[in-house]
Amino acid sequence: MRFHPEDKSMEQNSDCCNEYAKRHPRIIFTGILYRAARWILGIVFIYASFHKILYPAAFAEAVYLYQILPDWLINLTALVLPWLELFLGIFLIIGLWMPGAVVISNLLFIIFMGALSYNMARGLDISCGCFSTAATEGAADIWTVLRDGMFMSVSLYLLIATFRSMPRRSCNLNRG
């Protein structure tokens, strides 16, 4: 049997499991780690959406400079993506619709890292547009990709933790 970090029934409703958790700090640690990962990623997404929502025209230009999307999709992406990031951030923090939110989060990081790497590989010197739409953010480089990779590892952990529950011993086994 396994323990799911969001399993409230185990935390609240089962005396047996509460007792078990008290004696096994690893379970408590896993729960805290899961929550911390949700908060970190949630704050990152909300922070990233802020500038883009305020300045849609500047963000559309940043999307255009990536030269990946067809022209008709550029403004639509610039209008929808920031709100998607904001919703994801909120959902991750409050823990709502986690299966859907973590899948989208991972897909977004794959797209972001793919787009950055592709443009670096073809020598295009463009601003990342990740957290700010201002050109002062500087050109995207290997550190930008590594930073995205770091966030993606958090996102990947959430995906695994959400879909594959953490292993634990059965309370019944522990009772004796």
Binding site: L81, P82, W83, L84, P99
Partner: peptide
Amino acid sequence: WQIPAIVLMAGLVGI
């Protein structure tokens, strides 16, 4: 169902 629902919500609000 959550994936299309979240994307749809973001799309509607954004537009």
